[in-house]
Design a protein around this nucleic acid. Structure first.
Length: 288
DNA sequence: CACTTGACCTGTCCGC
DNA sequence: TGCGGACAGGTCAAGT
């Protein structure tokens, strides 16, 4: 999915678009996408008002006036798209990139009392949304084990380095992708930050120096903040709550740029496999 | 325990 | 054009 910057972009969009709206009906076609039973959904989702939209790591939390929360994980291809304009067909903004919704990848549709909709689309069906009491959210397994938010003001370089000690014998890329080490890092920003810090993704964590951890901390925060500013990265399916793409990929230095020149030294960027994922590096700047 | 790999799905792209 | 295989922004459950 969507990594931290994309989920944060969706969160900001949804905050503006759905807070204060009251849910009238819910329709779902796939029990994997939305496993709650219909009775629970009707009792605690229908007729409730959206009070807040929060994010933790790559998870969205839509808080409701019933003291229930809709937790959403978009995984690889999930989308949450708000459609308020009903003048055209099923209704979508004229500058939106999505076609008429719902379509065959729409698995859940929330309809608000004003006639607008929130669609949960997911081509690969890995994503899900789940309704639970708001007070229980911090105690689900994911929340208990997920690491700190890397963009928080009080998160320091020293804390960042300390978090990696638990994964001393794995590669730095595998550790970056481990949500229990640092929250919200995915394949794009792992590659981008490792390039920025001049660290080869296959280097073992225990060989990374303090100076390198400090560079990685700085670069990770830099690329994620820039990506949020640009509305995220859109390679294939990612779009925001208004159905629009993000432009971070215009600024990417290595991700999906194999065969092109490293913007720092001009060496041809290559693609390899690290931590089981397609990985992009400059073989001159990033050495084993 | 730490670490790696396969599975979950569908669509797309690339080589034959 | 068709077909098979690899691959895609993530995370689990299994395996070593």
């Amino acid at each position: 999915m969507p990594e931290l910057p994309e989920v944060e972009t969706v969160r900001r969009g949804l905050s503006d678009l759905i807070i204060g709206r009251t849910i009238k009906t819910v329709y779902g076609d796939n029990p994997k996408s939305f496993p709650n039973d219909a009775g629970q959904v009707k009792a605690f989702l229908v007729k409730s008002k959206v009070t807040d939209v929060r994010r933790r790591a790559k998870v969205l939390m839509i808080d409701l006036s019933t003291d229930y929360t809709l937790i959403v994980h978009l995984k690889m291809t999930g989308q949450l798209v708000y459609v308020g304009d009903t003048r055209f067909g099923a209704g979508h903004p004229s500058d939106s990139l999505v076609g008429n919704l719902p379509d065959k990848s729409t698995h859940v549709t929330l309809t608000f009392t004003d006639g607008s909709h929130l669609f949960f689309n997911d081509q690969r069906k890995f994503g899900w949304m789940k309704l639970m009491p708001t007070v229980e959210v911090p105690y689900i397994d994911f929340m208990k084990k997920v690491g700190p938010e890397p963009l928080e003001d009080d998160f320091t370089a020293a804390q960042f380095a300390e978090r990696f000690k638990r994964r001393a014998n794995t590669s730095i890329k595998a550790a970056l992708l481990d949500q229990s080490v640092i929250a919200g890092v995915g394949n794009i920003y792992a590659d981008e930050s490792l390039w920025g810090a001049k660290i080869h993704p296959k280097r073992l964590v225990k060989t990374i120096t303090n100076a390198e951890f400090k560079r990685l901390y700085t670069e990770l925060r830099f690329v994620m903040n820039l990506a949020i500013e640009k509305g995220g990265s859109s390679n294939h399916t990612y779009i925001n709550a208004e159905g629009k793409k993000g432009s971070y990929m215009d600024f990417a230095r290595v991700f999906r740029r194999e065969g092109l020149e490293c913007p720092r030294c001009g060496t041809t960027i290559i693609k390899l496999r690290a931590a089981g994922r397609g990985t992009h590096i400059c073989p001159h700047c990033q050495r084993l």
